[in-house]
Nucleic acid binder design. Structure first.
Lengths: 205, 205
DNA sequence: CGTTTGTCTGACCATCCGGTCAGACAATCA
DNA sequence: TGATTGTCTGACCGGATGGTCAGACAAACG
């Protein structure tokens, strides 16, 4: 057979591509794209390097697949923001879900952070495309709430940025947060009420 | 003469070490430590690779020198927080200075972000040492203000984290912010009044 | 059972990259 | 001016790393 391995078809393919993507997430998120090596990923996945390259065309291809495969998960919390719900509870719920993702999926957060820090060389289109569309849509919802006087007037885009910044900070800069707090702290447990208060005050009419 | 080049002594040494550190900041901040190469730094600095290694012992040594050399600049805004000043104006001033640093010194911001994202392998001691000490000191000041009823009660450490997160986000995730906002926006100009409002509401008694 | 299709690997290659070194070249100064 | 000290480079080295390939091996299926 020729080189391009078809997408998950057989049982073995599903298992191995899954193991590779999981291992790649582990390694890429910890070392960045350039810092990660195929040998590391192969070892974590429990496969040989040539076997990785039997399933994926290149290191680039693995990275891209991890990135795109995680986009849906990553944007789900924002998608769940419901125009029909109560404004304050919807936004606070979004904050809470994002903070939980930072706590439970820090590798995903760091993976995206690494990519964007380097100028998003492999994600530029997705940012200006799907992401912008989604944010614009939800920003319109938030603007509607503000204009109806149901929350305080705020710039909806920068509100979203501030939610991203404040929640992802606890995943991306985890070592710094823990170093500054010292022993005996649970950053996420402390951040939750802090952020709830912050956004309640910001949005109260 | 032996290998270790003495610290800036002659005119030429000062000029070249300066050019190297400037070039290293440029390259390390854009590519991360692992992604940067000595050839790139040498080219940006206008020197040959062996000449870099005449002035610095290794790639590691250059990186460490850039990092430590920038710490003072980086922490200056927080150091300037004055216990004797007006609480609200002091904190808003700190926010403004940090945002200006994100705008004017984005390379420095990304350099630190890269380092911390990778687990701060070369900065752990500085974080748990000088940085923690400085933050603890200023946190005590803020706690004092809160207990005196001059600002609303807040967790001072997480207040500092939120200032870092919100301001550095505009430097570190610049491409994402610009992609989502689209053409015709000045992220920093928009962020300034947004952040001022946010912190005014958070801290108002 | 044999054939076809799919899975896997050891050995290998080319390139990149951090780092070395002998010695050329330039500045300084007695 | 000659000697000393400081600056710089071309050529080279060894290890790491992404990627290839011929063929061994296993599963599926008629």
């Amino acid at each position: 057979m020729t080189k391009p391995a078809p997408r998950p078809k057989t049982r073995i393919q599903r298992r191995n591509t899954g193991a590779i993507l999981e291992a790649a997430l582990e390694v890429f998120s910890a070392q960045g794209f350039r810092g990660a090596t195929l040998d590391q990923i192969a070892e974590v996945a429990g496969l040989s390097k040539p076997n990785l390259l039997y399933y994926f065309a290149s290191k680039e291809a693995i990275h891209l697949e991890v990135l795109t495969g995680l986009m849906d998960t990553w944007l789900a919390p924002l998608r769940a923001l419901d125009a029909a719900g109560d404004p304050m509870e919807e936004i606070l719920g979004y904050v809470r879900r994002k903070l939980e993702m930072s706590r439970d999926l820090p590798r995903e957060s760091r993976l995206f952070a690494n990519e964007i820090l380097q100028g998003a060389p492999r994600m530029q289109p997705a940012l200006a495309g799907d992401l912008k569309a989604l944010v614009d849509e939800k920003a319109a919802v938030i603007r509607g709430w503000a204009e109806a006087g149901r929350i305080a007037p705020v710039d909806p885009h920068h509100l979203v940025f501030s939610i991203w910044a404040l929640t992802q900070h606890y995943a991306d800069f985890d070592v710094q947060v823990r170093a500054v707090l010292g022993e005996g702290h649970d950053p996420f447990a402390e951040a939750e009420p802090y952020l709830e208060t912050l956004f309640r005050k910001l949005l109260a009419v």
